[in-house]
Design a protein around this nucleic acid. Structure first.
Lengths: 121, 121
DNA sequence: CATTCGTACTAGTAAAAAACAAGCGACTCT
DNA sequence: AGAGTCGCTTGTTTTTTACTAGTACGAATG
């Protein structure tokens, strides 16, 4: 029985699958990123818009998260030229491609976290 | 023009949508949960299996995360009776219902984070 | 003019979360 | 006996997030 060969092949396949998901959660597994992206799904927003929509986030965290998301190419930051100067954030093509997954998560939460089990935080 | 009434209605709709997503990220936005759930998608695992599969996690974090996920009804913990005693973790129906979203995320990461942009962590 | 408000951040400190390391008792194998 | 695995727990350290106060700028108001 060459059992040592078969588990290795399975483990390699398992590792490959988890690696992509792990990479997604490198940023989604940090506080606020998922909700920020969900908020941007409705369209471009300014800093203050996002601050109001993402309830509970501080300026510092919002600023830092946006910087990371822009750095990762998921969000695009643009500066409007005319008075008043306004910064705007919107999803890139990569970011937009994430929305189906976020929609799934939202739908799942509506069905499975329907207020009966609010995880304490 | 009753403009004050219309933005309120829109904001309420936006809040309602974000609330479900925010709830999902109450646990998905914490380090390790997404990857743990992804690992359990392949079937029930023991603690040590999970420890090995979720590369980089410590015993403490794994123990704590599993406890939370079990408490949230997403993961089920069962204890095998016969020698040796073995604890096993598997996804509940709620947990299984999450997998389409995780699959989306994994597929997205494969297409959009194809090694060219590894966010530093 | 001065004041207030909104904007988009920054900087420093405090608190919470995560990482790190060692340990436990039970069990199996050599 | 020792060594290893299991499924955790405990305590300390480090990192991340929360909190607070501030900045410079522009627009609106008195």
């Amino acid at each position: 029985m060459n059992a040592m060969l078969e588990p290795t092949a399975v483990a390699h396949d398992l590792r490959s699958c988890d690696s992509a998901l792990a990479r997604a959660f490198d940023f989604l597994g940090k506080r606020w990123n998922g909700v920020i992206l969900g908020t941007l799904s409705t369209g471009a927003s300014g800093f203050a818009d996002l601050k109001r929509a993402v309830v509970g986030i501080s300026d510092s965290m919002l600023s830092e998260r946006l910087t990371e998301l822009v750095g990762a190419g998921i969000v695009e930051r643009s500066v409007g030229a005319g008075p008043p100067i306004a910064v705007s954030y919107r999803l890139t093509a990569s970011g937009l491609a994430l929305l189906p997954a976020l929609d799934e998560l939202s739908a799942w939460a509506s069905r499975n976290l329907a207020g009966t089990q609010s995880p304490a935080h």
